[in-house]
Simulated assay, not measured.
Amino acid sequence: MVDFYLIHDEQITPESPSDLEFIGNLDHKIFQNLKTKKIIDNNYDYYSDFRWNTPIIKQIFEHCIKQETQKDTDVEQLKQILSTAEHRKSGLIAFAD
């Protein structure tokens, strides 16, 4: 699983998510499906930690809407994570386990 946590853009990347708020996760199949659909850029790796700041979150969220994939369950799961981050005006950090 790739676990997503809220983190403010200006916050230093921690070694572990112990002090961060968990908001959701994606399994390998969903992550790969989202990459195939070009929702998640190919430079993000399922097995590596990565971070999305608020502008990237907004860009990915808008791309989800433009693709008109609202009925797509993979996209819906990602949109829930992105929506929470946008609502909280926060970035995201993903830790692979």
Rank of each mutant, 00 (worst) to 15 (best):
M1G: 11
M1I: 08
D3E: 14
D3Q: 13
F4H: 10
Y5F: 15
L6V: 11
I7V: 15
H8K: 15
H8W: 09
D9V: 02
Q11K: 12
Q11Y: 10
I12R: 12
I12A: 14
P14G: 05
E15T: 04
S16H: 12
P17L: 07
P17R: 11
L20P: 02
I23G: 01
G24V: 05
G24S: 09
G24N: 10
G24T: 08
G24I: 08
N25G: 13
N25Y: 10
L26F: 02
D27T: 07
D27F: 12
H28K: 15
K29H: 12
K29S: 15
F31H: 00
N33R: 07
L34D: 05
K35E: 03
K35G: 08
K35H: 00
K35W: 01
T36G: 03
K38W: 09
I39G: 05
I40T: 05
D41R: 07
N42P: 00
N42R: 01
Y44M: 08
D45P: 03
Y46R: 05
Y46I: 00
Y46G: 02
Y46Q: 03
Y46K: 01
Y47T: 12
S48G: 04
D49Y: 10
D49W: 07
F50W: 08
R51S: 11
R51F: 09
N53R: 09
N53F: 06
N53S: 01
T54C: 00
P55G: 08
I56W: 03
I57R: 02
K58D: 13
K58I: 04
Q59Y: 14
Q59G: 03
I60A: 01
I60D: 03
E62F: 00
H63L: 14
H63Y: 10
C64Y: 06
C64I: 06
C64N: 02
I65A: 11
I65K: 12
K66A: 09
E68C: 04
Q70R: 09
Q70G: 06
K71R: 06
D72Y: 00
D72V: 04
T73H: 11
D74L: 05
V75A: 01
Q77E: 14
Q77L: 14
Q77N: 08
K79I: 06
I81Q: 00
L82D: 00
S83E: 14
S83N: 13
S83K: 12
T84C: 03
T84N: 06
E86C: 08
E86L: 15
H87M: 14
R88K: 15
R88F: 04
S90M: 04
S90G: 07
L92K: 04
L92E: 00
I93M: 09
A94W: 01
F95G: 07
F95S: 08
D97W: 13
